[in-house]
Design a binder for these strands. Structure first.
Lengths: 344, 344
DNA sequence: GGTACTCCTGACAACCTTGTCGGGACTTCC
DNA sequence: GGAAGTCCCGACAAGGTTGTCAGGAGTACC
């Protein structure tokens, strides 16, 4: 006796094929056949079943189906740093698009740059038996994913490489990007260039710093410790740092920023300042072209990144078992004005 | 005989409790006890089990667990228009945060303003037995969710109300917001004000238009058909429309936009124009304060919206069975400059 | 030595669905 | 009338996990 008595949204047992079968006076297997459009059901019988399904509001339990079929859960997991960051939401959307093309749903989670949280999310998704995992690493160690990869759950790392694991990875050319920014500024006559980056423990931050140094060297400029500030940046911190670097006897005349957040913080700190240094930001952002002056950036397209990662993942799911790949996507310097100012 | 022979990521059967039990020489139930930290397992036995778990890379299958326990799948579904839109990614993040507090994972999907896709996503999520659903309606009919709601899956609609269903809904005060924008402009001497909104089939677009008209009436201004343009707006379309409204014998002196996308399109169309109309946008956006002039907006905080919706959802999951609620969140006019210009 | 515990472990059923297989009712054909 | 085939349909097991219950081994006590 199944009582689905059901007043106002009280949590009740959902109707199952058994309930449908009982109501329609058929066996549960027949219900299954109808639900799956299998042949071999008399039209009248099928109609009785469909009526019962409608009456009970039955919907096939995909969890049970997955268990029974044992193959795919039709989901992929996406672990990123923060969906609210436009860079990652763009990436998310692109991954979602590819997933949709392959008939999969997407589970997302934000790690907030916390390795423990990243790990927790990844493993939780694996426990849910996602068909594959796309991870923007927050931590530097990913040994915990080895059993998962070994068990056949493909994992693709995006934006930053994993640690302690060999796996597919999609990166952007951070070094060339930062070096290019410096070269561009040097070409416009700047000799004292500041770099404001994120915490050096973050791969992209370290790489961009490396590119910054390479750029200086190529331009024949010396590396000055005091012109570099790495670390998590609050808007207030950025303002203070910037003030310090733009003052004194030999102030910096140009700024390179390490990511979109820092670029925005710098713009805010500079707002209303009379003389502004030249500026090139890493990562493009909306409205960069409408600011005064328009902001030049080294851009990597999050959509392309997300698409590449997802497509790599689905290639693996399709049986591609070539050795793990590392894809490095090019970045593009978009000159809009802020990077082309001559030094004061 | 379970062969998990496993070279290079080939899809293989994952280890189950049965495999662990066999390897550890115990019953499957004992493995279950160890995995769940249940008491009543001898320390030595537990260690044998743990060793076997590590050796096999076993991870409990949450799908099977859900099926067995029958209660919660630990997931909620989030159907929105487009994660890449900063408004919705902010909403997503907030919902994710609340979900995390309640120990749930989030399934997301973008409908792209397509009712069929919205429906498909919602029902797919329900078939996955999400514990609850948050939906930004694309369509105007939601009868398809009635069986789900009746079966005890709480649904909360955000940003736009559902059609054909009575359910929890969280909105923002679109009418007051748009009316406020008009009042503000009128206070600054504007008498010919343009409204550029989204397709009137979209609830928020229609409501904002209504607010616009109310604002005009309150200010003693007449409603002029030719000063209103509703519909999906391409950047090029916006530019053309705008040109038309700002020219002629009695040109508009102020613009109210219907959402963040349109605001950006207007800004781009106006870039470099010598004399710019006053402007108030609906929805805040990053860097609005850094533009020249800074853009005044009617702002609703997507984070607050997402948080309210998620908290309402979890209240339902907690057993709250009061009648469906409709929450209308206030909007705030943020005057930054672009809305305070006097008419030319 | 028997009783009554405690401690640890395992057999079995159940969650919801589908794949396999067998069989009953009917038709067709010799 | 019997053989063979077709069309529908249902019983049963399985997928991975946990709740229930029963039982064996060991200890403590009279």
């Amino acid at each position: 006796m199944t009582t689905l008595s059901n007043q106002r949204g009280r949590r009740v047992r959902r109707a199952t094929m058994n309930d449908v079968a009982r109501l329609a006076g058929v066996s549960i297997k027949t219900v299954s056949r109808v639900v799956n459009d299998e042949p071999g059901v008399h039209a009248d019988t099928a109609e009785r079943v469909l009526t019962a399904i409608a009456r009970l509001g039955f919907r096939r339990n995909i969890g049970a189906l997955n268990l029974r079929r044992g193959s795919s859960t039709g989901t992929i997991g996406l672990v990123l740093e923060d969906v609210a960051n436009p860079f990652y939401s763009g990436l998310t959307r692109a991954a979602e698009e590819v997933a949709r093309r392959f008939g999969r749903q997407v589970l997302t989670g934000s790690s907030d740059e916390d390795p423990a949280r990243e790990r927790e999310l990844s493993l939780e998704f694996c426990a849910r038996r996602v068909d594959g995992l796309i991870v923007v690493p927050a931590g530097t160690q990913h040994g915990h994913l080895m059993p998962e990869i070994a068990s056949g759950t493909p994992v693709v790392f995006v934006d930053r490489p994993p640690g302690g694991v060999v796996a597919d990875t999609v990166l952007v050319d951070n070094v060339a990007g930062a070096a290019g920014a410096v070269a561009h500024l040097a070409r416009h006559g700047h000799r004292r260039i500041t770099f404001l980056g994120d915490a050096p423990a973050i791969f992209t931050a370290a790489e961009r710093l490396r590119g910054f140094r390479e750029g200086l060297a190529t331009a024949g400029l010396g590396y000055e410790e005091r012109l570099v500030a790495m670390g998590p940046h609050t808007p207030a911190g950025v303002a203070a740092t910037l003030r310090q670097m733009l003052e004194g006897s030999s102030p910096a005349t140009a700024v390179v920023t390490g990511n979109n957040r820092i670029t925005v913080a710098v713009l805010r700190a500079l707002a209303g300042a009379p003389a502004r240094p030249a500026l090139i930001g890493f990562d493009d952002f909306e409205l960069a072209d409408l600011l005064d002056p328009p902001v030049s950036v080294v851009a990597s397209d999050p959509g392309v990144l997300g698409k590449a990662a997802a497509e790599l993942l689905f290639a693996r799911l399709d049986g591609d078992d070539s050795p793990p790949r590392r894809i490095v996507l090019p970045v593009r310097l978009i000159a809009r004005g802020s990077g082309e100012a001559k030094p004061a």
